[in-house]
Simulated assay, not measured.
Amino acid sequence: MSELTFQLMDTHAGGDVSRIVTGGIDALPGATVREQMHYLRDDADGLRRLLLEEPYGIPEMSVDLIVPATDPTAAAGYIIMEVMGYPIYSGSNTICTATAVLEAGIVPKQEGTQRFVLESPAGLVNIEARVENGVVEAITCGGLPSYIDTYRAKIHVPDLGDVTYSVAYSGGFYALVDAAELGFSLNRAEERQLAECAHKIVEAIQAERGFSHYTLGDVGPLPFLHFMGPVEQVADDFYRSRSTTYVHPGVICRSTTGTGTSARLALMHYEGTIKPGDKLETVSLRETGFIGQFTAVREEGNGHVVENTITGKSYVLARSEIVVNCDDAMVDCSGLHHILTSAHPERT
Rank of each mutant, 00 (worst) to 15 (best):
Y147P: 11
H156Q: 08
I88V: 14
E137P: 07
P145H: 06
E111C: 02
V83Q: 10
Y151P: 05
N93E: 03
V125M: 01
I155M: 02
T140R: 05
G91P: 02
A104E: 15
K109S: 11
S120Q: 05
A129S: 07
E137I: 04
T99F: 11
P59V: 01
Y86C: 09
M61W: 12
I155G: 03
E60Q: 15
S92M: 01
K109Y: 02
Y151H: 13
I127F: 11
T113D: 14
L118H: 05
E132N: 10
E82A: 15
Y86W: 10
A129W: 03
V107F: 08
E103V: 01
T97L: 07
D71A: 15
G112R: 07
E103C: 03
A138L: 09
A122S: 15
E111S: 12
L102D: 08
G85H: 08
R115E: 15
T73D: 15
R115F: 13
A76P: 04
P72L: 12
M84C: 10
Y151D: 09
I106V: 13
Q110P: 03
K109M: 12
A104R: 14
E119D: 05
D149K: 13
S92E: 02
E60I: 14
I139L: 07
G105C: 12
S120P: 08
L144F: 00
P121D: 10
I127R: 09
G143C: 04
F116Q: 03
A138R: 12
T99W: 06
A104V: 03
A104Y: 05
Y78R: 02
V107I: 05
N133V: 00
T94L: 02
S120E: 07
D149I: 11
I80M: 13
E128L: 06
N126Q: 14
Y151E: 09
Q114S: 14
A74F: 10
Q110N: 01
Q114P: 10
V83D: 04
S92H: 12
P121W: 05
P121I: 06
A129Y: 01
I95F: 03
Q110A: 11
V135T: 12
A129R: 00
R115G: 12
Q114A: 05
A129G: 06
T99C: 09
H156E: 15
E60N: 14
C141N: 14
E111N: 04
V117Q: 02
M61L: 11
P108S: 00
V125A: 01
D149W: 11
V117Y: 03
I80E: 11
